[in-house]
Design a binder for these strands. Structure first.
Ligand code: FES
Ligand code: FES
Lengths: 145, 145
DNA sequence: ATATATTAAGACCTTTTTATCTTTTAATTG
DNA sequence: CAATTAAAAGATAAAAAGGTCTTAATATAT
């Protein structure tokens, strides 16, 4: 897998929350876990991380849940989610596990790999959660099965 | 990480063996582990997998070790090594962990992700171990630090 | 204020990955 | 063929990832 399971669930949860926020609704853990087909308790942990990293806002108590203000969503990039959960290794490290990706002392696949990694980073930096939420709202994309 | 640790060591070991094979030499476990800076016993396990998958040939006994015939090396692709160790998930599966990557029922990042995955697969299918071994022989690439 | 709904935090368990150790098998050399 | 060298195989251990459960904190509604 390119992302960890936690990160997959994290992105899916964020997109679902964003979709609901477009409708001015909050969404709670139970609904999230059901809609993205993820284990509930594990998803709760991941939402804590997202909340601590200001990627989602959480409100406790009755009628609480998770939300992402639309203004935030438009400037929230996939990169931030992946960084919060998996860190930046994927985006920066050597594809063959050398201590660092160093063009001065490249590993055998450095030349072939660097463009792929650059494109991945570009995609993660350019794609906003708002973009993804719109796709969901249009019914063009799906979060489970 | 894009590849598992086992796969990273596996590719690095394969390239080192190929480099020695270009010189008509066999290379043993101890030298491999030292030259690619990997844990010896774990590397032995990975070499068993590579051997079972006919990616490297192993010869037991005095003056034994591992080798890759040059003819094989020219047609041996990174894809085969990754497939043998990590399987084909990375090359085929949904980036957000849906059961399958299905363009008929795409996940929110499907469109953005599929080109990156396609380029990765292209690179893995096109790059031969011979290409990588040549880079090592030229002193243009490195397997540790 | 109190009861209730909901997230936060922390301890815990399970599975997979990474890594090691021991014994067996096979090839070479003398 | 005996001794030696090297990989194969299998059992075991440690660390990380994935996942659960219990208790605490906090916001809302009555
Ligand atoms: S050194 Fe390995 S990817 Fe750059
Ligand atoms: S459906 Fe997710 S990458 Fe294609």
């Amino acid at each position: 897998m390119i992302f960890s399971k936690a990160c997959e669930y994290g992105i899916r949860a964020t997109v679902l929350i964003a979709q609901h926020s477009l409708n001015g609704e909050r969404v709670g853990l139970k609904v999230i876990a059901k809609e993205i087909a993820s284990p509930e308790a594990f998803t709760a942990k991941i939402l804590q991380t997202l909340s601590r990293n200001k990627i989602v806002s959480s409100i406790k108590g009755p009628r609480g849940g998770f939300e992402i203000p639309i203004v935030n969503m438009e400037n929230l990039r996939l990169y931030q989610i992946v960084k919060a959960i998996d860190g930046e290794e994927l985006m920066e490290e050597c594809g063959l596990g050398l201590k660092a990706c160093n063009p001065e002392k490249p590993c055998p696949i450095h030349h072939q790999f660097k463009d792929i990694r650059t494109n991945l980073v570009k995609m993660l930096r350019e794609t906003t959660v708002h973009d993804l939420a719109i796709g969901m709202k249009d019914g063009a994309t799906f979060l489970k099965v």
